[in-house]
Design a binder for these strands. Structure first.
Lengths: 343, 343
DNA sequence: CTGTTAGCGCTTTCAC
DNA sequence: GTGAAAGCGCTAACAG
């Protein structure tokens, strides 16, 4: 029969011939505060070790109303972007004495809601969330219920809350401006349909840059549905090229990959026929024949900041709001090499 | 002040003017079993909903000695291989009514031990572990303590335990034999230093294939330390090519990437100068000028099986041992194209 | 210095 | 049909 070796405080107390409180005091380093007899303390410690006593975290959490656990809901933990974020969150939470509990929403509001409930049932102390389309309501409920949380990567417009995101407008602007400075002018952009603020920000930046460059007549935004990105990207890339674009800005990693898949199988040459700039790097883009220029998000900073903000809120008991926008930087490589004049 | 809306069973009971037991019965669908009055039941349900009552999972877990949580410790959750596994484990555990708690060991036995303790403190019902070099002792303790667990991706030699792995010997054999059949004969292999059984298995398969092909005189295994794979791969690739090899088998995804980084910057052409076969796919290898041939592990199957085995053990209370080796398949592409005769 | 006790929120046996 | 009470393991206020 399988059973875990469960020795409780009581067992230790019994074995040591003292009360459970004594054991609790000693094992929690409060022997000074409670002036526990040194010998007794030693004995308790020894016996606890002998019995291989491990405190039951559940009981402790129940007792003091804090599980020292943070729920983290991202779109998809297997997506490299979120996997990296998760790793950094894992480290940051651990350093702060918390444990991270991860789940994926699949960019689906209902799933998101379900995951939130599951985490709340586990009595997480707070949440770090990547809100998806349609999750506004869920998030608002969280506010009303006074559940501490911080939004990551995106936020909900007009909703007062903590969040940590990239400065997406600047990112979109910089990426676009870079292409313009490289000599490209008919720049198209592929993003996602929906109301995601990070995508919207990048588009906004793109628009501004095009305007500043006097190219607003070429603004060309192609938004694909988040489901079946592959098929739609293929379609869009084709029409973008046929439409005479000489450069393409892809709003996310996944979009870039799908566009690249199509391009690789076509006769479009990067950057001669089409310059390309994406978001987020990774070895994926290093091996393309023209290594990709991409806008790099400071993942670690974003992850750590979100943990910092949440933990600060948790430990101070204060309801302050922090809205943080971090800056990233463009990593320039061959996919956006200066345009050849003679073409 | 921040506080979660915590309404307990007692609150509902009070509001409904009944005892907590009644509420518990009703809310757990046991009104039939306990023949609760229909009207009362309705009222309780209504009030529970009005008060937005959510059961406290911690209390429940403490009470019935099961947290319905499974701890999962992989090498690094941000590594694509483990990120994919994690995602599948997440789905599988959820379908079975469990929650997955993830952590990374960084291939470090001490960290592994610490993570195990953290999970045990959270009272997980069982563990899914990717054992790393030197973790034998930790795993053995788990056995002795009767903690239900299953090893994933690797196992501990001579230790009777549940595990789910790839049939690594066959994988190494198939990969090597493929190269041989493509006309390559001086095949080198890069793996990891250490005692990881998955790597050892792949090597074993490689050796067998070389022997079967009458090439045992060319067997050439280059094991790099897990830390700083990048630098060592670079060194090894160089010496492998200088040593006259015409093909290379990389034992893991990470190794393949590092070797590829070096190759990309060198004048070695794939597959003309060197054929290449790796382990595990992903879009990374699709964009290399010669898309990579790789041995594909059935990640989803492995992940799901590990959950199945663990949950079966948990729910049956039986101490059966299951050792599962799943088969993968070679995905053949250009990096191992048939060798040109005239060279 | 040390033990008793109450209680965190929940389930379930047992009594009415 | 319903309620009281015990107890999961822990901590801390309060008595001694």
């Amino acid at each position: 029969m399988i059973r875990k070796n469960n020795v409780s405080l009581k067992d230790v107390a019994a074995a040591a011939g003292v009360s459970t409180s004594l054991v609790s005091f000693v094992l929690n380093g409060k022997q000074q505060q409670y002036r526990v007899n040194k010998d007794v303390a030693e004995k308790v410690k020894r016996i606890a070790k002998e019995l291989n006593y491990k405190p039951n975290g559940l009981a402790k959490s129940l007792r003091d109303g804090s599980s020292k656990t943070i729920g983290v809901i991202v779109s998809d933990i297997s997506n490299q972007f979120f996997a990296d974020i998760a790793r950094h969150i894992e480290s940051a939470t651990e350093e702060k004495g918390y444990m991270a509990l991860f789940a994926s929403s699949d960019e689906n509001a209902q799933t998101m809601e379900k995951q939130v409930e599951r985490m709340l049932a586990k009595e997480v102390d707070g949440l770090i969330l990547v809100p998806c389309n349609g999750s506004r309501n869920t998030i608002e409920c969280l506010s009303e219920r006074n559940v501490p949380f911080v939004l990551l990567d995106r936020y909900i417009p007009d909703l007062k809350s903590n969040y940590v995101t990239l400065d997406n407008v600047k990112a979109g602007y910089d990426a676009t401006m870079h292409l313009i400075q490289q000599g490209y002018s008919q720049i198209a952009m592929v993003g996602y349909k929906g109301e995601l603020v990070n995508i919207a920000g990048r588009e906004e930046g793109y628009r501004q840059a095009m305007r500043d460059a006097g190219r607003e007549d070429f603004i060309s935004i192609h938004n694909v549905p988040m489901e079946d990105t592959a098929r739609y990207c293929r379609k869009e890339v084709r029409s973008i090229v046929e439409g005479g674009a000489d450069a393409l800005l892809c709003a996310t990693n996944a979009i870039t990959i799908q566009c690249l898949r199509h391009i690789k199988d076509s006769d479009i040459r990067i950057p001669d026929d089409l310059a390309l700039v994406g978001f987020d790097g990774g070895s994926v883009f290093d091996f393309f024949y023209a290594p990709l220029t991409y806008f790099e998000q400071p993942l670690e900073t974003m992850a750590r900041k979100s943990v910092d903000v949440l933990v600060e809120m948790l430990e101070s008991g204060q309801g302050m709001m922090q809205q943080i926008e971090v800056a990233g930087k463009l990593i320039v490589r061959e996919s956006s090499a200066r345009k050849k004049q003679n073409k």
